[in-house]
């Protein structure tokens, strides 16, 4: 295991993030605050409680998850797309680094950034609503799993993309809608009958449900289903990354 290489990639990526740390934090904190003002206060004022939790508190886990997912995909994709775009990827390809080490470095750094952002949003939310966390260890586990899985998805997008337009395509057209329809702002049984079945095909529903359960002990789907879907998602992403490096897809001619 080339530990020095993992450390070099990780430190390089984190340094890049910290250079623009203000920017990468301000935007999620600001948008979360806006969600609280609009959904929590303006609309939440008209909704009493959802499953025994005040609406303002109910949306906190979903908001964190939504931000973590979108941040993970964009961090993960940018980290590997940028060296491809600049041409500096030559160095990684010519170094004695296995793909496992490269993935640990890049995806590890992207996931770390997402986790930091998730924690900061949690702290921001604490300013608006009283929070309780019923299962802190599960909360951390869901946060880490979601960050890693979606950073890995971002990594795949970053290798697939051949232009900045394509780089923005998946986060905007796939991840954002899935996150919005992932049960952040509502409980699944608040939806009309048929939609309750449709949303079960959205993997984000399982993430948000599991994450919310770790806070309030209430869930839309069972804990096992949540873990199963994340695990499946992770396995598919890992298989894709393995295939990419085995074939040299978009990396080697």
């Amino acid at each position: 295991m080339n530990v020095y290489a993992i450390r070099a990639i990780y430190a390089f990526e984190m340094a890049r993030a910290f250079r623009s740390f203000g920017q990468s934090l301000i935007s999620p904190v600001l948008s979360t605050s806006l969600y609280f003002v609009v959904f929590g206060a303006a609309i939440g004022g008209r909704i009493d409680e959802v499953e025994g939790v005040s609406y303002g508190a109910f949306i906190v886990p979903g908001l964190i998850m939504m931000m973590v997912l979108t941040q993970s995909v964009s961090n993960g994709s940018f980290g590997i797309y940028f060296p491809r775009f600049m041409g500096t990827i030559y160095e990684l390809l010519s170094a004695p680094v296995s793909y496992v080490e490269a993935v640990i470095g890049y995806v590890g750094a992207a996931a770390t950034k997402s986790i930091i952002i998730g924690v900061i949003i949690l702290a921001t939310a604490g300013l608006f609503v009283p929070l309780e966390i019923a299962h802190p260890l599960w909360m951390v586990a869901f946060l880490v799993l979601a960050s890693v899985t979606f950073s890995l998805l971002g990594f795949i997008v970053g290798i697939w993309a051949e232009s900045f337009e394509q780089l923005g395509f998946i986060p905007t057209l796939v991840v954002m809608p899935l996150a919005f329809l992932g049960g952040t702002f509502y409980s699944v049984d608040m939806l009309p009958g048929a939609w309750q079945t449709v949303v079960l095909f959205n993997p984000v529903v399982y993430l948000v449900s599991g994450f919310r359960w770790s806070f309030y002990g209430v869930a839309d789907v069972s804990l096992g289903a949540s873990l199963g879907v994340i695990g499946l998602f992770l396995a598919v992403a890992l298989a894709l990354v393995w295939w990419i490096f085995r074939t040299g897809y978009r990396l080697k001619a």
Binding site: Y4, A5, A8, M86, T88, Y90, E91, A95, P96, V97
Partner: peptide, 24 residues
């Protein structure tokens, strides 16, 4: 390599240290 490809925002020292790390 032939083409001048560098990480525009890095410092000279950081980019050279990074290379050494990559090579284990």
């Amino acid at each position: 390599p032939q083409e001048l490809t560098t990480d525009a925002f890095e410092t000279v020292l950081a980019t050279v240290n990074y290379s050494r790390g990559l090579f284990g």
